[in-house]
Write a protein that binds this DNA or RNA. Structure first.
Length: 803
RNA sequence: GCGGCUGUGGCGGAAUUGGCAGACGCGCCAGACUUAGGAUCUGGUGUCUACGACGUGGGGGUUCAAGUCCCUUCAGCCGCACCA
């Protein structure tokens, strides 16, 4: 027997799989479908990270197993290739981003193929391919036509390094998520998508899908639904000021009101105030601060009273002072609040600083002059007129009804979610397919003109004034209005990277269709994605955005399901050997090329699955990888002790059936580490015995195939039943044979283990008790003490409680 | 501050419904085979004051029985962060 030459074997089978097209999914098949999806990678210049194969191998195992179980499996791959790193690299090195992307994709392709994933490469998509982004643009046009895309001037987060507007999500601790430069506020006209219209459905429909709980929680937290009420306060100036509150039960405890500095009413009131200059100064100051600074300085509350005006508390007619303060956000609720310092931390801090009254209206706390009492739904109402004595839970609806009857307020649901900033002043993104005409306004380009391709330009740098690089492509910009024919200009902003990844899973279903996103039949057959695995870092934004687009496509009759993904799981990170996150600066990066070269793809795949619990972060270990390589070698070397016997041997039969069951279940539950451990145990059993039957060996390599496909294909070719092992049937097990006839039970005295005993597995409680009663060993253990009681757990243990 | 996750041998980690803590792997120790071994095979390996006792971050509780359930506390990681 020749030794295990993994590099030769792996090349051989990768070639055979590719040439045969055995992993291609079939449209219009009679078989049941299974659609497994991994997050398509961003082809960065650094090449594959060892984290990528963790996710890809996991779903590869599930996909391969399902294929062997007779499913028509779609396991596709593609490239999320627009985006800033490529563009920045292009600018720095004066290479066209198109070329950079092409090179990076070539490298990623090589690396992915080297790892032997059963991707259907014939369906590869690339978000930067005009034939792909044609449909990204098409979806945008439908959003525009339905009024879900709109342009508005608004303060944006401006990255001083990338010179690009960022969404809130892309600003981390006041700096750009990508380049780390300072982010400042700027006003700019931007395209927005009305994701907020879908907020409620994005929460509600989570009930219909099988996402791991923490993903659902994160989606819900991000959308941030809150139930409360809008309450109208009339000002002494005669104006109405509406506040939003979730605690309208505390209305009697309101001792002042606050508006955001940007609130429209402030501007209006300014001329009538006693202190307009002071107020104006404060507004200017607040406007200069970035959102980060405003939140960063949260400890110290600031604000200015609008002198000369008061707000009338609708509950009791009290006149309350009116403030502006930047602790109130203009973007949430109504941009104005009623302050109840006794029962809100922020209001309390503000009241203390400005020496405002603090009135307790909910009992149950300590002295509210010393600290606010903020527990929700606890305590009873006091100092609150008709609410007195009610619990908080009762008081809220009572107050809302009272307000509604008098036209002073109404029930209101608010969301933290804001509309999606969809414009980027960048070159390397999908052009927004709209034209601005002086007469007609924003006009969509005719669908038959899609794709609107990116113009070829020389300079990709964004302008200092924040203009898109496309603004310099004069020939491209200047066009005619599709509506009236007058001279018009194209939109020069491009779409964010999220755009192409919001619908790519649909394109895989029918990737070469020139007429539609995908054919109706393909969408009907493949939708929804059965199982989507990806990183926790994408569980808020990418998932939310793509669910939003999918719901929109559902609404306009394109896709057949409300939700795109039936099941979502997440993998943990692979850390450096020192337990820290892998990074160049920490010098702990593991290069997939090197480890595959040294130990082979099968060993790397096996190790990445064996390394630890799939959803948990775990450090890399070169020794652990070696151990998995050794395991594969032990499987390979079993050839030497293999007999011709086709059946399982009688002494190991039960073991084999148990292993089939365990491995089948563990792969489905993503407990790959314990599944592989079971295979290792079985191999150890063969070694202990010094023999393995051919039947046992073939079952072993079939179970191992999804994890280590190359080596097992090679062994199947030598000993198996012909064809690809990857397409051979998954082994069955006989439930009856997984059950032992005799089991070992534990004898405990007062909960301490004293002895063990083999008994027939089907013995019931009474039978066991009888057996124990007759046992001399047990009698010795009890030794004259009186038995208080005996607990019998069939098949597990007997606990004798003695005195 | 809010939300979520995690604490188990020297290390990575196992342990359906409370029922033998430490599966499997690494590392380490010993033996076999070897000219040799950073190869391979076999055996051992939680701790201790060791025929017994103690052990799942700490403290308390429920139970015949707790890594698992309850209360409390500490530490670390991740996400959000003035959202009224």
């Amino acid at each position: 027997m020749e030794s295990y030459n993994f590099s030769e074997i792996e090349k051989k089978w990768q070639k055979k799989w590719e040439e045969s097209g055995c992993f291609h999914a079939v449209n219009g098949s009679e078989k049941p479908k299974f659609y497994a999806l991994i997050e398509f990678p961003y082809p960065s210049g650094q090449g594959l990270h060892v984290g990528h194969p963790r996710s890809y191998t996991a779903l590869d195992i599930v996909a391969r197993k399902r294929r062997m179980q007779g499913y028509n499996v779609l396991y596709p791959i593609g490239w999320d290739a627009f985006g800033l790193p490529t563009e920045n690299f292009a600018i720095k090195n004066k290479i066209h981003p198109k070329i950079v992307t092409k090179n990076n994709i070539a490298n990623f392709t090589r690396q992915l193929k080297m790892l032997g994933f059963s991707f259907d490469w014939s369906r590869e998509v690339n978000t930067t391919d005009p034939e792909y982004y044609k449909w990204t643009q098409w979806i945008f046009l439908q959003l525009f036509k339905k009024g879900l895309a709109y342009k508005t001037e608004m303060p944006i987060n401006w990255c001083t390094g990338c010179k690009v507007g960022l969404s809130n999500e892309e600003v981390v601790n006041g700096v750009c998520e990508r380049c780390g430069s300072e982010v400042v506020q700027r006003r700019k006209s931007q395209w927005m998508l009305r994701i907020t219209d879908y907020a409620e459905r994005l929460i509600q429909d989570l009930d219909e899908v099988d996402y791991i709980e923490r993903v659902k929680t994160q989606q819900k937290n991000w959308i941030g639904r809150s139930e409360g009420a809008e309450v109208k306060f009339t000002l002494t100036s005669g104006d109405d000021m509406v506040v939003y509150t979730t605690r309208c039960d505390t209305l009697f405890g309101a001792t002042y009101v606050v508006m955001a500095p940007e609130h429209k009413l402030v501007e209006k009131l300014l001329p009538t105030l006693e202190n307009p200059d002071e107020v104006r100064d404060y507004i200017t100051l607040a406007g200069k601060k970035s959102e980060f600074e405003r939140t960063e300085l949260a400890k110290e509350k600031t604000g200015v009273q609008l002198k000369g005006v008061y707000a009338v508390n609708p509950a009791n007619g009290n006149k309350l002072p009116v403030f502006i303060s930047d602790y109130v956000l203009v973007t949430y609720g109504t941009g104005a609040i009623m302050a109840v310092p006794a029962h809100d931390d922020r209001d309390w801090a503000f009241a203390k600083k400005f020496d405002l009254p603090i009135i307790e209206v909910v009992s149950g706390g300590e002295d509210v002059q010393k600290e606010p009492y903020t527990d929700v739904y606890k305590g009873n109402m006091i100092n609150s007129d008709f609410l007195n004595g009610l619990s908080v839970k009762e008081a809220i609806p009572t107050m809302i009804s009272w307000l509604e009857e008098r036209g002073l307020g109404k029930r209101k649901v608010n969301y933290k979610l804001r509309d999606w900033l969809f414009s980027r002043q960048r070159y390397w993104g999908e052009p927004i397919p709209l034209v601005y005409c002086e007469k007609c306004g924003w006009v969509p380009i005719p669908e038959e003109e899609l794709p609107l391709e990116l113009p070829e330009i020389e300079e990709f740098e964004p302008g200092e004034n924040g203009e898109s690089p496309l603004a310099k492509a004069y020939d491209w910009i200047n066009t005619t209005c599709p509506h009236c024919g007058a001279p018009a200009k194209r939109e020069t902003d491009t779409m964010p990277q999220w755009a192409g990844s919001s619908w790519y899973f649909l394109r895989y279903m029918d990737p070469h269709n020139p007429n539609e996103i995908a054919s109706k039949e393909a969408l009907e057959y493949w939708s929804p994605v059965d199982w989507y695995n990806g990183g926790m870092e994408h569980t808020t934004l990418h998932l939310l955005y793509s669910r939003f687009w999918h719901k929109f496509l559902y609404d306009i009759g394109i896709v057949p399901t409300k939700e795109p993904y039936m099941k979502r799981t997440s993998h943990g990170m692979i850390l450096g050997e020192n337990g820290e996150k892998m990074s160049k600066s920490r010098n702990n990066v593991v290069n997939p090329d090197e480890v595959v070269h040294d130990f082979g793809a099968d060993a790397v795949r096996t190790f990445e699955m064996f390394i630890g619990a799939f959803d948990q972060s775990t450090p890399w270990s070169q020794d652990g990888l070696k151990g998995c390589f050794k395991f594969l070698e032990r499987v390979w070397n079993l050839q030497d002790m293999m007999t011709d016997e086709e059946n399982y041997s009688s002494d190991l039969e039960s073991n084999v059936h148990k292993t089939i069951k365990k491995v089948s279940e563990d792969y489905e539950r993503m407990k790959f580490n314990t599944g592989i451990a079971a295979l290792m145990s079985l191999v150890n059993d063969f070694y202990k015995k010094g023999a393995v039957t051919k039947g046992e060996f073939l079952t072993l390599i079939t179970l191992l195939n999804p994890v280590a496909p190359h080596m097992t294909e090679e062994l199947w070719e030598k000993y198996g039943k012909g064809g690809f092992l990857s397409l051979a049937p998954w082994p069955d097990y006989d439930e009856a044979k997984t059950i032992d006839s005799e089991v070992e039970i534990v004898i405990q005295i007062n909960g301490k283990i004293k002895d063990k005993m083999m008994i027939p597995a089907d013995l019931d409680k009474a039978g066991i008790e009888k057996l124990i009663g007759e046992s001399e060993a047990v009698a010795k253990l009890v030794d004259g003490k009186s038995i208080v009681k005996t607990i019998v757990v069939p098949g597990k243990l007997v606990n004798i409680v003695v005195k």
